[in-house]
């Protein structure tokens, strides 16, 4: 048993962290800085992180990249295309997609080129600049082209409707579908953890500089203690996520899904608590549109909803 990250994994994480720190929006105003977004888009595309899975990356590596980019609120597609890429690879391996015609065929061609994102319930949550949609309904893979896009709840991602009805293009085996679900839970968990870490850092830095009664507010225990709790919650989340990310490829599918559910249930509560603390520490400003606190929170809320993990699915036997 040795669950340390490998040197390569640490280097990948550091590269993602550098990109996030350099090209993520540092303010709400920066969300509409098209130059910055274009540079972030170019950097993520060049790094090839949207096709990590078909390039052979493990769940651990995928989770590290997603977490770091979410920490920096990087507002170009990653989670959606990553999951579509994995789904497409599984579809191909299962011999699916061969008979697709028209828009479905066009969608699969786009998917092969890494230009597809994921749809859930017929809607894509991470669609900026993407051409095609893939969806897994039960064990059936469906495909289509991206239609109208719009701003959603999450200010760092665009949602999209399909141009027409999504068309069945093949089937996955039950094990394959379960493993893919585990990955989807892990990716959305990593996204929440990253956003929570970003929110915590924002709040800690603010608590060091905002002064009331002649002292920085972070010197007061009433402010410092929730921030300390936030860091403990981050550490707990890192531990459950790392195991779940490893389990995607290494445990049997049912165990991988359960590990991912544990990670998501734990991290969802942690991330929401941390974002709420971030708003509270910022006081009135934290409740304004101009503070990044709600941008982190919105990202957490949408990633929580995307592949929900319910407490009722947790097995208490811990087999």
């Amino acid at each position: 048993m040795d669950v340390r990250l490998t040197t390569e994994q640490r280097e990948l994480r550091d590269a993602a962290a550098r990109l996030a720190d350099g090209l993520g929006p540092q303010s709400v105003l920066a969300l509409v800085d098209d130059d910055r977004v274009a540079r972030a888009e170019k950097a993520v595309a060049e790094a090839g992180w949207r096709t990590l899975r078909s390039d052979g990356a493990s769940g651990v590596e995928v989770a590290l990249v997603v977490e770091e980019l979410a920490r920096g609120l990087v507002d170009v597609p990653l989670a959606g295309p990553l999951l579509a890429d994995d789904l497409y690879a599984r579809l191909k391996a299962a011999g699916g997609g061969a008979g697709a015609r028209g828009e479905a065929a066009e969608a699969l061609t786009a998917a092969a080129a890494g230009a597809a994102t994921l749809a859930v319930g017929g809607v894509a949550a991470d669609a900026k600049g993407m051409r095609a949609l893939l969806e897994l309904a039960g064990t059936e893979v469906r495909a289509g082209l991206v239609g109208a896009t719009a701003e959603g709840v999450d200010l760092t991602r665009l949602v999209a409707e399909p141009a027409g009805p999504l068309v069945p293009v093949g089937e996955l085996g039950a094990d394959d579908a379960a493993r893919w679900r585990a990955l989807a839970l892990v990716v959305t968990t990593a996204d929440m953890l990253g956003a929570a870490r970003g929110a915590l850092r924002l709040a800690v830095e603010y608590a060091k500089v905002r002064s009331q009664y002649g002292h920085p507010i972070g010197s007061y225990q009433a402010v410092a203690h929730p921030l300390a709790e936030g860091l403990a919650l981050v550490e707990g989340s890192v531990s459950v996520l790392r195991h779940a990310a490893w389990a995607v490829d290494e445990l049997d599918p049912a165990a991988a899904v359960h590990a991912a559910l544990v990670a998501k249930v734990y991290t969802e509560r942690a991330a929401r608590t941390i974002c709420e603390t971030c708003i509270q520490v910022h006081g009135g400003i934290g409740n304004t549109w101009e503070c990044l606190a709600h941008v982190f929170l919105r990202r957490v809320l949408t990633s929580a909803e995307l592949f929900p993990a319910r407490l009722e699915e947790i097995d208490c036997g811990l087999s």
């Binding site: 800690v204 608590a207 060091k208 002292h215 920085p216 972070g218 010197s219 225990q221 410092a224 203690h225 921030l227 300390a228 860091l231 403990a232």
Partner: peptide, 9 residues
């Protein structure tokens, strides 16, 4: 945690 890890004053 607040003082030694987060570096709060």
């Amino acid at each position: 945690i607040a003082g030694r890890i987060l570096g709060l004053p």
